[in-house]
């Protein structure tokens, strides 16, 4: 069992090593794309372009929390809420302006997204790599990858909306989609469990996809070159 797992981890390592640049680009692209998608959904949902941006001194905020929170156990959840950037829409029709909605870039969540993107990119590279994983298993692993990525992506959303107490929470996305208010709040506590389930699905599918190919020499076989792939390879050459 341990040998089989080690063998699969070796396969994953080999694929990532051979296609590291592509993996890195995919990882970063998925992360940036995710936040662009969140911003696009806010713009489409509310019909306004962002009209303000704020930069927060995140290191100083973290230092303040560390200095003023006696319990070490209390620190992580508070630090996890700290913003680095905020882009939003300020409604000036009433009073001096109300931040109607915002996309918050929270470093802790960015790290979670980078991990998600890294796993997703690895899964995609393995899906395109010829291992001895059967087609059925590859389909199942692909579905699990999509489901896992969906769980993590949904629960990592950092949009805030003044109606949801104006704090970034993942249920804002669900509320924006029209989910009932009470239902959204009811499922909010299961967010961390969904995130964990998402990561587990991604890890399992990664392991499933990394069954070494039976080429006799244990080497990984690259997929047949397609014009698109050739172009990508050429770009990295």
């Amino acid at each position: 069992m341990a040998v089989a797992l080690r063998s699969r981890l070796t396969t994953i390592g080999d694929v990532l090593h051979r296609r590291f640049s592509l993996w890195l680009i995919l990882t970063l692209s998925f992360t940036v794309g995710y936040y662009l998608l969140l911003m696009a959904s806010l713009i489409l949902r509310f019909g306004n372009l962002p009209n303000y941006a704020r930069v927060y001194n995140w290191p100083e905020s973290v230092w303040t929390i560390v200095r003023s929170t006696p319990s070490i156990r209390d620190m992580p959840p508070i630090i996890a809420e700290e913003y680095l950037l905020e882009f939003g829409y300020m409604n000036y029709d009433y009073g001096l302006g109300i931040s109607e909605w915002a996309l918050n870039i929270i470093p802790y969540k960015v790290v979670l997204m980078l991990v998600l993107s890294g796993l997703l990119a690895a899964n995609l590279l393995l899906l395109r790599t010829k291992t001895s994983c059967s087609t059925g298993s590859r389909l199942k692993a692909g579905a699990a990858t999509g489901l896992g990525a969906g769980f993590v992506a949904v629960t990592s959303a950092t949009m805030s909306w003044v109606v949801c107490c104006a704090t970034p929470t993942w249920i804002v996305g669900l509320s924006m989609l029209g989910l009932g208010v009470s239902t959204a709040f009811w499922i909010e506590p299961i967010g961390p469990w969904l995130t964990a389930a998402g990561y587990l699905l991604l890890c399992f599918s990664l392991i499933a996809l990394s069954k070494p190919s039976d080429t006799g020499d244990g080497q990984i076989v690259e997929p047949a070159p397609s014009p698109q792939i050739s172009t990508r390879k050429g770009a990295h050459a």
Binding site: D93, Y94, I98, E100, V162, V163, C164, V181, S182, A184
Partner: peptide
């Protein structure tokens, strides 16, 4: 019941 901000509700 729908969730709406004061400004949007107004």
């Amino acid at each position: 019941l729908k969730n709406q901000s004061p400004a949007v509700g107004a």
